[in-house]
């Protein structure tokens, strides 16, 4: 594989829910190690776009290439591709019947056939990284929202993915818990992880993003570096959006 090939390549994606056009001819390329923050008003298709990347949302037309593999190729194993794509949800979606540690070890043990001791070692290291090591034996219900989301990030990392997708990871959190999650994400970004983040956290976008993608009505209307986007937006819709929130 050529080193300059983008790790994610979305080409002319279209997607409708009934008569509602959720994605309109979206083309986007993301290089390995890049951090992309997707912004836009609600209903603009940000989450739908993110969810098409690991095929939680199917597309009507277009093509998606992840790390050289066609997401819709007949010979490709979607589950293999998904192992390389960690996903973090707005509502955490931890497994409530498993302890924190088991949440992290389930997939590596079952899918990668990792030995339990090794999986637990890895899990504990990841929990330490997100500051949750002392809660390994707790159940999700016993944790605050911010703690649950940090565990959810660790759970996704336990599969050692190449790319991390974040779908509004802080939108369901109380304000005082947002920072602890953003800090974990910032650390991850500094370590060189390829990240695609849908968020409303402008501070995070400004600080961490290599590129801001602004969406409206299912289409990408502007792509720019954060400094350009926030100080000098080109598109009138971006200008309007920024005026609303800043």
């Amino acid at each position: 594989m050529n080193a300059v090939d983008p790790i994610i390549r979305l080409h002319q994606i279209n997607k409708s829910f009934g008569t509602f056009k959720a994605l309109n001819d979206v083309t986007l390329e993301i290089n390995a190690g890049e951090k992309i923050v997707v912004l836009g008003p609600s209903g603009s298709g940000k989450s739908t776009l993110l969810r098409t990347i690991n095929r939680l949302e199917t597309i009507d037309s277009g093509s998606i290439i992840i790390d050289g593999r066609n997401l819709y190729g007949p010979a490709e194993d979607i589950n293999q591709i998904r192992m390389e794509l960690g996903m973090v949800f707005q509502s955490f979606n931890l497994f409530p019947h498993k302890s924190v540690l088991e949440n992290l070890t389930l997939a590596p043990i079952k899918l990668k056939k990792m030995e339990r001791e090794r999986a637990e070692e890895l899990a504990l290291a990841l929990l330490a990284k997100v500051g949750m090591r002392d809660r390994a034996s707790h159940y999700p219900i016993q944790l605050s929202g911010g703690q649950q989301q940090r565990v959810a990030i660790a759970r996704a990392l336990a599969m050692e993915p190449k790319i991390m997708l974040f779908d509004e990871p802080t939108s369901a959190l109380d304000p005082e818990m947002i920072n602890e999650v953003l800090e974990v994400m910032t650390t991850l970004a500094k370590e060189g992880m390829t990240m695609v983040v849908v968020t409303h956290e402008m501070g995070f976008a400004r600080e961490v993003a290599d590129k801001v993608v602004f969406m409206d009505e299912g289409a990408i209307v502007e792509q720019a570096s954060p400094s350009d986007f926030f100080t000098n937006p080109q598109n009138p819709r971006s200008q309007f959006f920024l005026k609303q929130i800043l």
Binding site: N79, M87, N93, L94, F95, L111, A156
Partner: peptide, 24 residues
């Protein structure tokens, strides 16, 4: 969301049912 979380980790539908959904 439980199904989505499981699928996104790489489990197929059958594994998702066996490890995540049915135990709950």
């Amino acid at each position: 969301g439980q199904t989505e979380a499981s699928l996104s980790l790489g489990f197929n539908r059958r594994q998702t049912m066996a490890y995540v959904i049915l135990p709950q």
